[in-house]
């Protein structure tokens, strides 16, 4: 994140390249350009800065009366608008898109690798990986032979809809299948950001403690499905599966739960079947959309050539 303005653009990289959609400029920089001496007299900066304000006040003599302007706009309106575009794009391309969220190390990438190995011959799969640094996770996915894009958020603590939209450009043309978006390992921040996914999938591993859904309710509230991972480790850790599920249901009574071990394979069939059903459903929705459009075209043609 840029320390001057707090935005993440300076550090964002997609497959190692900075998108730089628009020039990264700040008000500060403009002011510096005007005083024209901040390179040689860095200490002047503070003075010229406050003079700037004094001056505005003097020249106005009397402050005009403040007026209230109604705004009534959501803080996340821009993200949500891009997320809607993504969602429509996924629908048009019959992609079942999932946003995987968890604390660091809950097993998202391991789960994806095993999922893809099991499905890649039946179903087209693609992955968008989000991490602050490194290409490691995208490389682990690519080793299975399927396409993956790595987003590095730098200091950013979550993916947003725009990053996903940009990352889609680095994927081959897609026409039905599964899109897995692995979010930055963080059980807090990604909860607020819709990426256009069909569902958030929260992965909770048994080494993290039973009370995680109580401690981080926002994420469990936003997710439609919870995977309890690393159940092969249950004999060695103090984790109460039933209690963890009860806590998750307290913040989200409709949450679907699957218990799995990504490495041993327990519970994988239930997860894979759920994915296949939903991928088929996404294809059906797209085919219905196409049929509806064809019918509409035929109707219009009929009106043009009565």
């Amino acid at each position: 994140m840029c320390s001057t303005c707090g935005c993440g653009e300076g550090n964002l990289h997609i497959d190692g390249v900075s998108p730089h959609e628009h020039p990264h400029t700040h008000q500060h920089d403009h002011e510096h350009e005007h005083d024209g001496c901040h390179h040689t007299h860095p200490h002047e900066h503070m003075h010229s800065h406050s003079h700037h304000h004094e001056h505005t006040r003097d020249s106005a003599h009397i402050d005009p009366a403040p007026r209230m302007v109604e705004v009534e706009r959501d803080l996340l309106e821009r993200n949500d608008a891009v997320a809607r575009e993504n969602r429509q794009w996924f629908r048009d391309h019959a992609l079942f898109a999932l946003n995987l969220v968890s604390s660091p190390g809950a097993g998202k990438t391991t789960l994806l690798v095993h999922t893809i190995e099991a499905l890649k011959n039946e179903c087209q799969c693609v992955v968008i990986e989000g991490d602050q640094q490194t290409q490691n996770d995208a490389e682990r996915i690519r080793a299975t032979g399927i396409p993956a894009v790595q987003i590095n958020t730098g200091k950013g603590c979550h993916l947003d809809a725009r990053m996903v939209q940009q990352a889609m450009n680095n994927l081959p043309p897609l026409n039905q299948g599964l899109l897995f978006i692995e979010n930055v390992g963080n059980l807090v921040c990604p909860a607020a950001f819709d990426l256009g996914e069909a569902h958030k999938v929260v992965v909770l591993s048994v080494t993290e403690g039973t009370d995680k859904p109580q401690k981080y309710p926002d994420m469990f509230h936003e997710a439609n499905i919870m995977l309890i991972n690393k159940i092969d480790l249950l004999p060695y850790v103090d984790f109460d599966v039933e209690q963890a599920i009860a806590y998750a249901q307290q913040v989200n009574p409709n949450i679907k739960v699957i218990r799995i071990s990504a490495v041993i394979g327990d519970g994988m069939d239930e997860w894979l079947n759920w994915l296949k059903e939903n991928a088929n459903e996404a294809r059906k929705v797209r085919d219905d959309d196409v049929h509806a459009l064809r019918r509409r075209i035929a109707e219009l043609e009929a009106r043009l050539n009565p």
């Binding site: 402050d63 403040p66 302007v69 109604e70 803080l75």
Partner: peptide, 8 residues
Amino acid sequence: RIASIEII
């Protein structure tokens, strides 16, 4: 949500 802003 931003409800309003006060400006001069």
